[in-house]
Write a protein that binds this DNA or RNA. Structure first.
Length: 224
DNA sequence: TGCCAGGCCCTCTTTAGGGCCTT
């Protein structure tokens, strides 16, 4: 039975902001090294040792390196849990909320498919699908929400600086999710816009699902 | 050892190229 914890929007969804730090940007092959989430005051944060080496670019951006089978953050060892344990506890965290939606910046292209692949490896995808109402991509949502305002840059770091007038430790997953939650509450988008941008894990593998995210030209084409 | 993507969008476009977003 699910708990009734609810920190969400007016449509009854709990918005669980999440972020992954990984060994690189290659969605089909990268490994997760940090997984963080926040929903209201509840937070989740685990580190895990990657199987593949960190790309130099990812190390430079995140500060994570691997040395002697230990994960280091800016040269300091951080505690890790097994990848399976990390994913099981994450599913449990998500399960503790009412009608949870996992929210991330660029979730559709990056965080959601990387998470789905990791869950699939440990046969946890169907369990997560059962628990989860869907994903929400704040990158795509912000384009619709802010496009008419003339904003031309949609990186999370820029949006946080622009709207919240502050900088933060970007690329630390826990700091990223806290900033994203604050940014989202600052925007306070209408439930209708939120609902329009929610997608399920199954839809990640559905080529036709890309339709709602296609640009005006494509949308016009399909309306013909 | 050494290096690393992909798909959409925009425009000085469509016989293309470059930028963005995530690490």
């Amino acid at each position: 039975m699910q708990s009734s914890r609810h920190h969400g929007d007016d449509s009854g969804h709990s918005l669980v902001f999440f972020d992954l730090e990984t060994t690189g940007l290659d969605v089909p092959t990268c490994d997760i090294v940090q997984m963080s989430a926040v929903c209201g005051d509840a937070s989740f944060n685990v580190h895990m040792l990657p199987r593949r080496r960190m790309s130099p670019q990812a190390s430079r951006v995140t500060g994570f390196t691997v040395q002697d089978d230990a994960l280091l953050l800016h040269g300091r060892r951080v505690e890790t849990v097994s990848r399976q344990r990390a994913l099981i506890t994450f599913v449990d965290f998500v399960r503790s909320f009412s009608r949870p939606v996992l929210v991330a910046h660029n979730a559709f292209r990056f965080d959601a498919p990387v998470l789905a692949r990791a869950l699939r490896e440990f046969c946890l995808q169907s369990e997560m699908e059962h628990v989860l109402s869907g994903f929400l991509d704040t990158f795509l949502l912000s384009k619709e929400l802010l496009g008419p305002t003339g904003i031309r840059k949609y990186s999370q770091e820029y949006l946080v600086e622009h709207f919240l007038k502050k900088s933060y430790r970007a690329h630390n997953a826990l700091e990223d999710v806290k900033a994203l939650q604050e940014l989202f509450h600052h925007w306070n988008p209408a439930p209708s816009i939120i609902r329009r941008h929610i997608f399920t894990m199954a839809q990640l593998d559905d080529p036709f699902f890309a339709l709602p995210y296609l640009g005006p030209r494509h949308r016009f084409f399909f309306q013909l």
